Amino acid sequence: MYTGLLLILGALFAGYCIRIHSRSLQLVLRRFSSAMLYLILFLMGFGLALVEDLGSNLLAMLQQTLFLVGALLIANLGCLYLIGRYLAMPSPHSEIAGQSKGASLAEPLRLIATVGVGLLLGLLHGQALPAQSAIAEWALVALVFAIGIDLRAAGISLRQLLLNRRGLLIALTVVVSSMPVGLAAAWYFELPWAAGLAMTSGYGWYSLSGALIGDGLNPVLGSTAFMVDMGRELLTLLLIPVLMTRSPAAIIGYAGATAMDFSLPMLQRAGGNQIVPVAIASGFILSLLCPLLVLFWLGLV
């Protein structure tokens, strides 16, 4: 277990040490990351089909997902709303009234479909693929390595991000308020306490959290983590117009790691350019903490 976790963590830092300036190479890298992600999710669905007593496990996965999504929503937004009252956040100023939600939903739906196709083919095939575990592990290492390069390509120094007081406090509030939810889920569903903490440390980065937990624990918990973090992203999409005028800190924090990429254009449209530095800082910090914390908790299971 620890060898695999160190390999993945090493791949992240090795990727972060590489700086790529070419836009074309960055595009190739993102396409490669996307291909690895689809492969991992397909193999996760395939492995899920081979789990004994699949029906009851799928029911448990649904129960855990609903519990975690609901509890994280309440805990994160409640704490973020309180901390936001003392951060003197910039007043939101909407720049664009409307936005298409259909296009934003397309990618999550394709990823869910990939897991479903893997599950269906796994049920039809009835046995593991040759070297399935090794392929999944090395695809994950390649994905994390590419993610490390992509994070470095953001072009913002760690010093600049970590010195953004508002972004740092928002990110830390998300981390701290998520931990009791993980412990409560572990107790309620009779899981190892560290597994519960790992499942609440994805902060919306479903493409990474599900893959790490699926590889480190089992496909059922990996699929649960994937759905929990995807649920956070979809709820963010719906809540941005509602919460931006009430508490910018709350919606920026709840967006989690996606505040620096997927959710950033929508946050900027709803709140104006003045909230962009805070969103990027919070999202980037959570993006760095996600693999570190998930791997740390998995090492304690």
Rank of each mutant, 00 (worst) to 15 (best):
R165F: 09
M260W: 00
M199L: 13
L143P: 11
L295T: 09
L237F: 14
A49Y: 00
Q268Y: 08
H93M: 12
D53T: 00
I149A: 06
Y38S: 04
R165H: 10
S157E: 04
Y206I: 06
A184W: 04
V51Y: 09
L300Q: 15
Q160F: 02
A134P: 12
T200V: 14
G78V: 08
P219H: 05
V117R: 00
M36D: 00
L37P: 04
G122M: 03
I240G: 11
I147V: 11
S201L: 04
E137T: 12
R31Q: 14
L264P: 03
L66M: 14
A184C: 10
I285K: 10
V174A: 05
L7N: 12
C17E: 13
S94E: 15
L243K: 04
N164G: 07
S100Q: 15
I135D: 10
L124D: 13
A103T: 15
G84C: 02
R23I: 00
L5T: 01
W187D: 13
C17H: 12
L298C: 09
A60G: 01
V28Y: 13
R232T: 06
L289T: 01
F145P: 01
M260N: 05
N164F: 00
T224P: 12
D53L: 10
G45N: 01
A153S: 11
G122I: 10
C17I: 12
L87H: 00
L221A: 12
V181F: 02
G299V: 08
Q160E: 13
I135N: 12
I252F: 05
Q160G: 08
Q26E: 10
G148T: 08
I149P: 08
S207I: 02
T3K: 15
L48V: 07
M260C: 06
G271Y: 00
A103Y: 13
R30F: 03
L298Q: 02
G148P: 07
A136G: 07
A225K: 03
L289I: 03
I18R: 15
W297Y: 10
L72A: 06
R152Q: 14
G231N: 03
N273T: 06
L197C: 11
G182I: 02
N164L: 07
R232D: 07
D261F: 08
Q132L: 10
V294D: 06
I275V: 06
R30H: 12
G256P: 02
G216C: 08
Q274W: 05
L82G: 05
L87G: 02
L73A: 11
A249R: 02
V28H: 13
L12I: 11
S178N: 10
G283F: 00
L208G: 06
A255V: 05
K101H: 14
